[in-house]
Amino acid sequence: MKNYSILSVTCLIFASLLLVLGCKDDTSGQQNAAGQQLAMSLPVVEIPTKTLTAYVTYPASIEGVVNSEVRAKVAGYITDVLVDEGQKVNRGETLFKLETQSLNQDAAAAAANVNAAEVEVEKLKPLVDKNIISEVQLETAKAQLQQAKSSYNSIVANIDYANIKSPVDGYVGDVRLRKGTLVSPTNQTPLTMVSDISQVYAYFSMNEKDYLNFIQNAEGATISQKIEKMPKVNLLLPNDSLFEEQGTIETINSQVDPNTGSISFRAKFDNPSRLLTNGNSGKIQVPKTFEDAVVVPKESTFERQGTTYVYKLDRENMATAASIVITQEIDNLYVVASGLKKGDRIVAKGVSQLRGATEIQPQEIPFDSIAQPIQKVFR
């Protein structure tokens, strides 16, 4: 029995050694197989040139082309408010009425003075004709009549001023003062604002660097010529939609704002739908066109220590990292200033798998298959 146990243990040890040796042989077989694998297969594209338009955005504030404050010319209590906020009004249309009771009384007294002065003039005329009184007395009476008429006309004008009218065609803004409110010409707050928003101004600013780059690259010899030839601009609304109309840059401030170091621009937009109004905000998109530019997909690049690289292929399909200089980012493309030229081949996808110079098996794919903008499904 003892011999049988020793034999069993010996067999088990021998079997274990065979198993270990067999596993070792299998492992070396995997390594050999791995060493015999072919070069890595990766998609490759040929670099083209394209004409693209990029947009540089600047915050903008919106105002109507005409913004006229409505103020009282005489003091009085508001008796009628004849318009509401947002209402379209015409020039000369009455918006507010003020009480005129005291002015009416003053007008009646002034009219009586006019009548008395006229009676006095008529009474003195025959006396002058008969040389009973001097001509000076008649002229004095006529002067007093003229003074009475002026006083009356002034009061009548003030009565008319109590009917506060719109100075322009446009739309009524806030109406915060209501019936019974005392107003006067000295009020700091206007009764309302009437704005012509059939067209609107968009005000935006550029810093000095952007301004100089923009002006130096614009067509024309003078600032006036450059403004005339500037491209249309877009207005991006706060909800990220584009305004339906394109705008035209009309003016550029000739001075740098000392507080911000920026230069202001004004663009004008038609506003037929009345979508825009005073106080709106948005972003001006100024276009910049790159003609026949060398472009590369972002997905085909990688960054190292602040420098952007691609893997460029030589004739033997050896992929080697090459640095590139980028001038603009447009959608999912980079516009390349240097480092690549039209016709170069680069690794399109999978650049993270490469290290140093690596021979690959290129799979040629169309450039546009990876250069199309990515559609946003969620945000």
Rank of each mutant, 00 (worst) to 15 (best):
G306A: 10
K226G: 03
I346Q: 02
Q255E: 13
K232M: 15
V325W: 08
A267L: 13
L275Q: 13
V233R: 04
P238Q: 03
R315N: 14
R315K: 15
T289F: 13
N271M: 08
L276T: 05
L236Q: 10
D257V: 11
N332F: 04
T251K: 09
K298S: 02
L276S: 05
K341P: 03
E329N: 11
G306Q: 07
R345T: 08
A319I: 06
L235H: 06
F265H: 09
D257R: 04
Y309W: 07
M318K: 14
D270V: 07
P231G: 09
T260Y: 11
S262I: 09
F269V: 08
N278D: 11
K341G: 11
D240H: 10
T248I: 11
N234L: 14
V335P: 00
I249E: 03
A321H: 03
D257W: 08
E245K: 15
R266G: 10
I227E: 01
E228V: 09
N271Y: 09
I223F: 11
A319T: 03
N259R: 14
V310T: 02
V296R: 01
K232H: 14
G306L: 06
Q285L: 15
T307A: 12
T277E: 07
N259V: 15
K288Q: 15
G343L: 12
V295R: 00
F243D: 05
G282A: 05
I326G: 02
E245D: 12
I249S: 03
R266P: 09
S262E: 14
E250N: 14
E219F: 08
P297I: 00
T248V: 12
F269N: 03
